Amino acid sequence: MEKFKITIKPAGAVILTALARFSHLDTLLAYVLVDEFKNKHRDWKMEDIEKIIANDIPLQKIKFSDNEFLYVNSIPVCINEIPFSMLSFKTAQKIKEKDTSKWIKLKINIYKSSNSNRYLNYWPVEVIAKAKKYLDQERGPHCMRQIKYEPSLIEKIEYTGCGDVELVERIIKQLRYIYKKTAIGFGKIADIQVEKASDVQIQRLLPVEYFPDVVPMFYSRVLPPYWDKSKGVYLCGLGVVQC
């Protein structure tokens, strides 16, 4: 097991939500591995997916019990991020001229709403029909009425971790898109670089219950798999883990 750094260069605009800013590298690796498995096994079961999450991600673990652990990997660090709300048309044109791979369309609003009936509270039917591909539905009992996604230009996104560097590189380089609204072109990846880096810090969310020295920030599901409610919700803070 060795320390490493991953550098992802987006090809254009990225939609990075608040939740994604605190999502760890292992979620991306799990996405690729699970997608691979589903493509090969049409009769897959949820138990198969749970085994992949627990056994196949090539990262070092911090174990608390037989079925409770954390992966030694980081949350994303965004380098030179510019939200679209801070971009003028002239600035966008300059960026596009400098790097022709940048996909920039400033006059676009992307919304997330609870259901089609609530869309009618904000737009006429003809507008909804025209903008349907930019709309998404929010679910759950505590969903907000209206959310507007804000795209950003990000020079690069960095992750750090500790694990089998060659296997991590093989998996992560299969990603083509990252984060939200990839179906309409956001989050396209231009390049991914993986390098050994013994001097990097690995900063991630840590449960205060097991790491009492971290400063509490918010409650989160922090033990993989993150969708498993039986794992519980922990009061967490940011801390540095060792390889």
Rank of each mutant, 00 (worst) to 15 (best):
Q93M: 15
K94L: 06
K94D: 09
K94W: 04
K96D: 02
K96Q: 12
E97H: 06
E97Q: 12
K98C: 11
T100S: 15
L106K: 04
L106A: 02
I110E: 09
S113E: 15
N115H: 03
N115M: 06
S116I: 14
R118P: 00
R118D: 13
N121L: 14
Y122W: 10
V125R: 13
E126P: 07
V127I: 14
I128N: 04
K130W: 09
A131Y: 13
A131K: 15
K132M: 13
K132Y: 13
K133E: 15
K133H: 15
Y134S: 11
Q137N: 14
R139V: 15
P141N: 08
P141V: 05
P141A: 09
C143Q: 13
M144V: 12
R145M: 13
I147D: 07
K148L: 12
E150A: 13
S152E: 04
S152N: 11
L153M: 08
I154R: 03
I154A: 10
E155M: 09
E155D: 14
K156W: 01
I157E: 06
I157H: 03
E158D: 10
Y159F: 07
Y159E: 03
G161Q: 06
D164N: 15
V168Q: 01
V168F: 04
V168C: 02
R170G: 07
I172T: 05
K173A: 05
I178P: 07
Y179A: 12
K180Q: 07
I184R: 03
I184A: 02
G187L: 07
G187S: 04
I189T: 08
I189N: 03
I189Q: 01
D191K: 11
Q193C: 08
D199C: 03
D199F: 00
Q201G: 00
I202Y: 00
I202Q: 00
I202G: 00
L205K: 01
P207Y: 06
P207F: 04
E209K: 10
Y210Q: 13
F211G: 04
P212A: 11
P212F: 07
D213N: 13
P216S: 09
R221A: 14
R221P: 03
L223Q: 06
L223H: 03
P225T: 06
P225W: 02
P225I: 05
Y226T: 10
W227A: 08
W227V: 01
D228T: 00
